[in-house]
């Protein structure tokens, strides 16, 4: 893979991979990954005629790791993506996200309807569904509560040779790598801050604002073996998407779909990105009315 580059945006350094030429695709990873999550899709998409941009989101990989919780609000992170794409001269990328990256991708689609072409979300459905989780989803999200206690969560995860962290991650995803990444200075707190800023019980109490409809053509992908995020999130997303909606369930994948079924994901993305009329094309006639 090519070397990562770094840009300074919003007072943080964002490291990113930039490969290929063509219509731009932004790939957003989740917790506790980095752009490395997309190592199988990057060459496939570049080969398929796209320019692929895969950043290490703030707090992860080689990007800056501010230690304050407030630095990890969703809007701030969406701003990182906006600033990154503007610096690279990209106006309307396709946006693809997995896990937290999918949550960011949804948010990006709400906030920047004119700066998104196609949207593809893996594992994580529309936040409107997650705002009213079933008791089963709450049970599956138990670790998000554990992550809420600054200092204490870190100590619990880290002690006894990072035993609890390992038990939570199991043998999934790039499990060997996660711990090495999280052991880098400030990385664990930064990663947990994503949950503290956006998944705290207080956040659930805040009055919910209605979500703007998603106009971009949207592809949802969910792995049938996902232990952390249930299918309800993806199935329930359909009603929030006003653009064309497509749902793909990948039987042979767990939570880390890009790693568990790399070819399937590449193929789905290649068969989807740029194939539908994009949101703006749909909106233009309406504006003329």
């Amino acid at each position: 893979m090519t070397e990562k580059k770094t840009v300074r945006v919003n007072d943080v350094d964002i490291a990113y991979v930039d490969e290929g030429e063509g219509d731009p695709v932004i790939l957003l990873h989740g917790y506790p990954d980095s752009s490395y999550l997309w190592r199988h899709q990057i060459p496939a998409l570049a080969e398929g005629g796209f320019r692929v941009i895969a950043p290490d989101l703030r707090g992860f990989g080689d990007s800056s790791k501010p230690q304050e919780i407030e630095a990890y609000g969703m809007q701030t992170i969406v701003n990182d993506i906006v600033a990154l794409t503007s610096k690279l001269g990209i106006r309307r990328p396709h946006v693809v996200g997995h896990d937290w990256g999918a949550a960011i991708a949804w948010m990006y689609a709400f906030l920047m309807p004119r700066r998104i072409d196609h949207l593809a979300v893996l594992s994580v459905g529309h936040p409107g569904v997650f705002a009213r989780p079933s008791i089963e989803q709450r049970a599956a999200s138990w670790y998000m509560l554990l992550y809420q206690f600054p200092g204490i969560s870190e100590e619990l995860l880290r002690r006894n040779g990072w035993r609890l962290f390992k038990e939570i991650m199991g043998r999934d995803g790039d499990h060997d790598r996660y711990l090495r990444d999280m052991a880098r200075p400030g990385a664990l707190t930064a990663g947990l801050n994503w949950y503290r800023a956006n998944r705290s019980p207080e956040a659930e109490l805040r009055p919910a604002r209605p979500f703007p409809p998603v106009l971009a053509p949207t592809l949802g992908i969910w792995g049938a073996g996902d232990q952390a995020l249930r299918e309800e999130g993806m199935l329930g997303s359909a009603k929030f998407v006003k653009g064309p909606w497509r749902y793909e369930r990948v039987e042979e994948a767990g939570h880390w779909i890009p790693l568990d079924a790399p070819e399937v994901v590449s193929k789905l993305l290649l068969g989807f990105l740029g194939t539908e009329d994009s949101a703006q094309a749909e909106r233009r006639p309406r504006r003329r009315l």
């Binding site: 880290r158 006894n160 040779g161 990072w162 035993r163 962290f165 390992k166 060997d176 711990l179 090495r180 052991a183």
Partner: peptide, 8 residues
């Protein structure tokens, strides 16, 4: 140790 694979 933890990152290298230590197990309690």
């Amino acid at each position: 140790f933890g990152a290298g694979g230590a197990w309690e």
